[in-house]
Design a protein around this nucleic acid. Structure first.
Lengths: 347, 347
DNA sequence: CTGAAAGCGCTTACAG
DNA sequence: CTGAAAGCGCTTACAG
């Protein structure tokens, strides 16, 4: 009925250890021991405490526990946005699925994910009582990572910081080399002979790694002409269209698209050149999205398994927070190619 | 270099109040006062403390503050999922945008959103040191809301609990009555004379309100035959298709779709009946999504302004947490209809 | 204007 | 097997 107003709502009217002590006639220390199972408390006492604790709906105060060195159960999740203007459906799709999986598995493990995406992240670090932090797609030489390091906060990342010399111990990632090879092999078998990689200068490891893998594949396949176009940020659709038009005139038969925002611009540009997909030009996106699935033609795409990545990320963070070795978690996640209508049938 | 292992990472090596006291030669209480600006501390002392505090990168321990009754800055965000099998792109689209807006504005206000969606929510309530909780789309007679009430946790909701008699004071919502009228008026002007509302039995206020508004509109327009089909949960595409086929044979010229998951099933069913959209059957969805935009034809839809809702939700929660009256926040969010290709031109 | 004391809710040595 | 004491980092009366 009446609202509770300014009072600290999370701890209003809660039973404390003292309440149980009073109720059972035991001392607070005994109650504490009985609850944690630590000391050698008699079964009878233990039962008495358990009963009272249940009856009074006792829950230990997390902040008090934290002051004694316990974990809070809070884990931070940071998604660094490289440049707001470069955002689009596809990236969001990936991010959302990844975040959601992370959160779901965290909650299922009695951990509470705090969303830290945004600009105020650094202010939160070292203040917020989180046990650890997961960072999705850190930027090159990411200052956040250095801050985390400095403050001694346990953290893991999805994708490595390309400019950092830190080891990959606490990094979850796709097997980009493998997946790029599979994708390009597939395109090759579908007739690719002259391809264009469309990428952007975000500096994030995702772009970098894909470009590298693409180049490596190209060198191993001299019968395929592999070219690359790097779009500057902020993303400009008209520019992307121009690049694609030029490529079409150069006889490119395959576009390997690492810049999801450019998707419709690419489709339009190809159509404007009077060419058709996939007969004249094949198109494959390096990240899957609802949009890719819904467009006509449906766009073939690499499914990076964002949900699996999110889950691994959490598992790895748990490892690090608890001081375990990282080896217990498989850190490389395989991806799949979803062949759809924007690529041809196998020849 | 070496990782920090099991130690509580958030508070490792942090300067404490005592450090500043030692550094300045003042007592801890004086330092505390100087920092908070409370007592009448001399300017000179205050400056001395500020300097030391900055130099030592002092940040108050949130858990300690919390024990003294301060807020933690943590706010819970709960999205109740009515039934996992009924989930789909459109709902997710809405949810994601809403959540994201909530999180963004929270972070911008130095609040930290904790994602509580999932089954373990109730375990967290009363344990987690959150200042308040926002619940998106509570179910009918939602036990979570009762728990929140019981525990005295400050909360607000997006959409009211249809079976609760609580006032709408702390509820943010769309102006569903208004938007339904606008949408149906628009459809009417586009030739709707025989319409079907396709809804589902989720019991959430969203469905209920739309159905009610639809009925009200129908009564005011005797020249339009308005029918309703309620799909049972879990959602079954085949069943939805059957309902739509029947409706098509009955001469329905407009489908008002409140069940986004049924979108493709509806399209397929209409096509299977040899009818075309929008010429034979118009289609309008009550929630917008990337999918609705990308499909061919592009689906007309109600844009519920999820981002605005998320922002309002946060603003309202802040109000409640700080003990203010709710009137300072406009709780009714207007929506818009995005007329696309699945509805006809105005006649 | 500044400091010593008590206490928020808990745990962990240390005595009995 | 159980309890009294000290202390995590802070603030807020209360004395000086």
């Amino acid at each position: 009925m009446a609202s509770s107003a300014a009072k600290d709502s999370a701890s209003r009217d809660r039973a404390t250890l003292r309440d149980i002590a009073l109720d059972t006639g035991l001392s607070m220390s005994t109650v504490s021991q009985a609850l944690r199972g630590a000391g050698r408390i008699s079964e009878a006492t233990r039962a008495r405490v358990a009963e009272a604790s249940a009856r009074l709906a006792y829950r230990a105060n997390v902040s008090a526990l934290h002051m004694r060195g316990a974990r809070t159960g809070l884990v931070g999740l940071v998604a660094t946005v490289p440049d707001s203007t470069s955002w689009s459906v596809g990236d969001l799709d990936f991010l959302v699925r990844c975040e959601r999986a992370f959160c779901d598995v965290a909650l299922g493990s009695d951990r509470y994910p705090v969303m830290l995406s945004g600009s105020s992240v650094s202010g939160a670090i070292g203040v917020l009582p989180v046990d650890g932090v997961a960072v999705i797609d850190p930027g090159p030489n990411d200052p956040l990572l250095r801050l985390l390091e400095e403050r001694g906060v346990a953290y893991v990342t999805l994708g490595r910081d390309v400019l950092s010399d830190a080891s990959d111990e606490w990094v979850v990632d796709n097997d980009k080399l493998g997946i790029t090879r599979v994708a390009l092999d597939g395109l090759y078998q579908r007739g690719m002979r002259r391809s264009l990689l469309l990428t952007a200068d975000t500096g994030q490891n995702y772009m970098t790694d894909v470009a590298q893998a693409y180049d490596a594949w190209g060198e191993a396949h001299p019968d395929v002409t592999t070219t690359t176009a790097v779009l500057p940020l902020p993303f400009d659709a008209a520019q992307a269209a121009r690049v694609v038009s030029d490529a079409c005139r150069d006889g490119v038969d395959t576009i390997y698209l690492a810049v999801e925002p450019a998707l419709t611009a690419v489709l339009d540009a190809v159509a404007a050149e009077g060419l058709s997909i996939p007969d004249d030009v094949q198109l494959l996106a390096t990240t899957d999205s609802t949009r890719a699935q819904s467009l006509v033609p449906a766009i073939s795409a690499v499914d990076l398994q964002p949900a699996a990545l999110g889950e691994r990320l959490f598992a790895l963070l748990e490892q690090r927070v608890s001081g375990a070795v990282p080896d217990a978690v498989e850190r490389l996640v395989a991806a799949d190619v979803r062949w759809r209508d924007s690529t041809r049938a196998l020849v």
